[in-house]
Amino acid sequence: MKTQTFIPVVMALLMGSPLLARESVKSLEELQALQKKVEAVSAKVLPATVALVSDRTGSSGSGVVTTADGLILTAAHVVQGADELEVVFPSGKKVNGRVLGANFSKDIGMVKITDPGEWPFVARGESKPLEAGDWVVALGHSAGYDPGRTPPVRFGRVVSEGPGNFFTTDCTLIGGDSGGPIFDLEGRIIGVNSSIGESLKNNNHAGVDGFKDDWDRLIAGEMWGQLSMNPFANPEMPVLGINMGMDRRGKGVPIAGVFPRSPAAAAGVKVGDRLVSIDGSAVASGRDLLLSLAKKQPGDKVKLGVTRDQESVEIMVTLGRMDSIFENR
């Protein structure tokens, strides 16, 4: 579906093994094989799943160590308002951490352990190729660090992609789990816990690829962006750079305006075009367009089906970011 999924699929075929994340569960034997992986992941990642406790704000979140020298990935809202944090390992071992950067729009943040030492850590995987049905394992110090237990393991699968860099799973989360890690079946970090909705299936995580994109700024200690549960208000939301006209009876979205120097302008989208499909799926209304864009990310290439002067035209557009569209005006 996304262009990024292509490479791992090809690699998996070349290596002669099925794509591991999508393991089938059609028999008890297959369930037992899946169980073995979940047990292995749980044992591997547990020692690197830390609680992050702030003296100043009195709050307690979670994080995961991703380098031997103690770089921790967490959620932006966990480090909000703190410069220093106590980092607590599952054993209760407490060390000091310094807050580095955070991007609130993606709800991602970094902390660095300042005590010298080598720490248990887990490598990072990829979040962009994730799709509904991929098996995942989430951990976090639910309800804050509890010396009487290790951070609880939760098993589930990706339920929905988006908005943007976020994805939704049915690994149930609660307060204190924020910033805690979520892993693929190889035990690689694929995201950090961010928010929940009422439904047990509505647990949202920020994808680990968001860290990759912002790595240098986060390491440098920059804080930016805006915490938002609303994908349409998120400054990093992917956009085409058009103004939508009123859609008529489900026959597509008329393009009423094209922002100068926007992705749509660069790709040759014109005022008066009628947008009828995106990546082959029909766009009946403005709502359809907004929802399908919310599942993409800036930098993704999409194929627009456009009706222009009674003729069908296909246009490839590389999506931009909402904030950059307004900067460019």
Binding site: T57, G58, S59, S60, G61, A75, H77, V78, Q80, G81, D107, A143, G144, L173, I174, G175, G176, D177, S178, N193, S194, S195, I196, G197, E198, N202, N204, L227, M229
Partner: peptide, 16 residues
């Protein structure tokens, strides 16, 4: 509990 409203899970104190 108000249904259907997304919230970030985090510990007390509540956000400012």
């Amino acid at each position: 509990v108000r249904r259907g409203q997304a919230r970030p899970p985090r510990m007390a104190p509540a956000p400012d």
